[in-house]
Lab assay of single mutants.
Amino acid sequence: EPSQADLDALLSAVRDNRLSIEQAVTLLTPSSGGGSGGGSMDAKEILTRFKDGGLDRAAAQALLAGRTPA
């Protein structure tokens, strides 16, 4: 399960175009075949909204942490 520091680094990389959204989703869902963790939004949607400015960093982190299976 990614830590808050991992999520923060991942969000920074996506925002700075050092990591594509697809690459980030793969890192967030290493063994689930890329499927959502059952959250209301999947990781790709969360990351896309964050990059487009629709979500701030704290909200994106909380959503990603919340949808990651324990």
Rank of each mutant, 00 (worst) to 15 (best):
P2S: 13
P2W: 15
P2R: 03
S3N: 09
S3W: 15
S3E: 10
S3Q: 11
S3F: 14
Q4D: 09
Q4M: 14
Q4R: 10
A5W: 15
A5T: 13
A5V: 15
A5E: 10
A5F: 15
A5P: 14
A5C: 15
A5I: 15
D6I: 12
D6C: 13
D6N: 09
D6V: 12
L7K: 02
L7H: 03
L7A: 02
A9N: 11
A9W: 14
A9S: 08
L10N: 01
L10R: 00
L10S: 00
L11S: 01
L11F: 05
L11M: 04
L11I: 04
S12N: 12
S12V: 09
S12W: 06
S12I: 10
A13N: 04
A13V: 02
A13Y: 04
A13E: 04
V14W: 02
V14Q: 00
V14P: 00
V14C: 02
V14F: 03
R15Y: 14
R15C: 07
R15K: 13
R15N: 06
R15M: 14
D16E: 06
N17T: 04
N17W: 04
N17G: 14
N17A: 05
R18E: 07
R18S: 10
R18T: 13
L19N: 01
L19F: 03
S20M: 03
S20F: 02
S20Q: 04
S20E: 03
I21N: 01
I21E: 01
I21R: 00
I21G: 00
I21Q: 00
E22Y: 04
E22F: 04
E22V: 08
Q23F: 06
Q23G: 06
A24T: 02
A24C: 06
A24Y: 02
V25H: 03
V25M: 11
V25G: 02
V25P: 01
T26I: 13
T26M: 13
T26N: 12
L27G: 02
L27R: 06
L27Y: 10
L28D: 01
L28G: 01
T29P: 14
T29G: 12
T29W: 13
S31T: 14
S31V: 07
S31W: 11
S31P: 09
S31L: 12
S32F: 11
S32V: 06
S32I: 12
S32Y: 13
G33Y: 08
G33Q: 15
G33R: 02
G33V: 09
G33L: 08
G34K: 05
G34R: 03
G34Q: 07
G34V: 13
G34D: 12
G34M: 12
G35L: 11
S36Y: 14
S36P: 11
S36E: 14
G37I: 14
G37C: 13
G37Y: 14
G37W: 10
G38M: 15
G39W: 12
S40R: 05
S40N: 12
S40F: 11
S40C: 10
S40V: 10
M41H: 06
M41N: 05
M41A: 07
D42L: 10
D42R: 08
D42T: 14
A43E: 07
A43F: 14
A43H: 09
A43R: 06
K44R: 10
K44E: 06
K44L: 09
E45T: 05
E45H: 05
E45N: 05
E45V: 05
E45K: 05
E45G: 06
I46P: 00
I46F: 02
I46M: 02
L47M: 03
L47G: 00
L47K: 00
L47C: 02
L47D: 01
T48V: 08
T48F: 04
R49F: 08
R49S: 08
F50S: 00
F50R: 00
F50L: 02
F50T: 01
K51M: 05
K51R: 10
K51G: 03
D52E: 14
D52K: 06
G53Y: 04
G53C: 05
G54V: 11
G54M: 08
L55Y: 04
L55R: 01
L55E: 01
L55S: 01
D56Y: 02
D56K: 05
D56L: 07
D56F: 02
R57K: 15
R57I: 08
R57S: 10
A58R: 07
A59W: 04
A59I: 08
A59L: 08
A59F: 05
A60W: 02
A60I: 03
Q61G: 05
Q61E: 11
Q61T: 13
A62L: 07
A62E: 09
A62H: 09
L63P: 00
L63K: 03
L63R: 02
L64T: 01
L64R: 00
L64I: 06
L64C: 01
A65L: 11
A65S: 14
A65M: 13
G66L: 11
G66E: 07
T68P: 12
T68C: 11
T68S: 09
T68F: 13
P69L: 13
P69K: 02
P69C: 06
A70Q: 09
A70G: 11
A70F: 03
